[in-house]
């Protein structure tokens, strides 16, 4: 989940000025730490090496669909790649040869395969609640020095997925790391989704999308409760 790629693409706002603009009494929100993070990207060398890799992913995806509906989640990706740390920037030709990919890379690849399927697709960033035990495990397994992970904040984590738009502007949110669709229901406790943000190059600012009972405004974080 470490988003070096994301941080490369950070909107380089002058954080101090933003911070100064936030009144001291404003309620702290679960997504504050990652508010300006952008979704991870898979980079392209601009050469045939990356083009072969990208074509291989998207053509394999169609083969793996087995004739099912184009809205079917590409769970095969998770069978091919284990979830784990990825170094960014990561290029297509590297990504397809990795044993492990993080949520950002898996989400970026899923987004690409939906796009090639001609399904309307967006990037999704979420904040989820886990536990101290889970955070400790991830901290230990993701870096040897036990440095705090930038995608972790106490028992909250930053996570990425992708979304597809089906009939009537309804969204389905694909968790590419888990291989399941996220449930648009408020929850608390282990694994609960607390905030979500939908973005995408093709998504006009202000567009409203429906996710279960929630109206999500494009490019805006939304707390789920």
């Amino acid at each position: 989940m470490y988003l070096d790629a994301g941080s490369n693409n950070l909107i380089n706002l002058e954080m101090s000025s933003v911070a100064k603009a936030v009144p001291a009494f404003e309620k702290k929100r679960v997504f504050d730490k990652w508010k300006y993070w952008q979704p991870s990207q898979i980079s392209h060398h601009g050469k045939i090496c990356c083009e072969i890799a990208r074509e291989w992913i998207t053509a394999t995806d169609f083969s793996e669909l087995n004739g099912d509906c184009l809205y079917t989640g590409p769970r095969w990706l998770r069978q091919r790649f284990k979830w784990g740390a990825s170094a960014f920037p990561i290029f297509w030709c590297e990504a397809v040869r990795r044993d492990t990919l993080d949520c950002g890379a898996l989400a970026a690849i899923s987004h690409e395969v939906f796009r090639v399927r001609n399904v309307k697709t967006y990037r999704v960033q979420v904040v989820q609640k886990f536990s101290e035990v889970a955070i400790s495990q991830w901290t230990n397994s993701w870096n040897e020095g036990n440095e705090p992970l930038p995608w972790v904040n106490d028992d909250l984590i930053y996570h990425e997925g992708c979304a597809i738009e089906t009939a009537n502007r309804q969204l389905k949110v694909w968790d590419a790391s888990a291989g399941w669709w996220l449930d648009p229901k408020p929850a608390s406790g282990y694994g609960a989704l607390l905030a979500i943000r939908v973005s995408g190059n093709n998504l006009p600012i202000g567009k409203i999308l429906k996710w279960g009972k929630y109206n999500l405004q494009a490019l805006e974080w939304r707390e789920i409760f």
Partner: peptide
Amino acid sequence: VGHWWHLFESMLRWCNSIEAL
């Protein structure tokens, strides 16, 4: 039969990639 036609379309996509690459 249905799966065969899916495989056929899948194969066309692979061929398209091979041509392009």
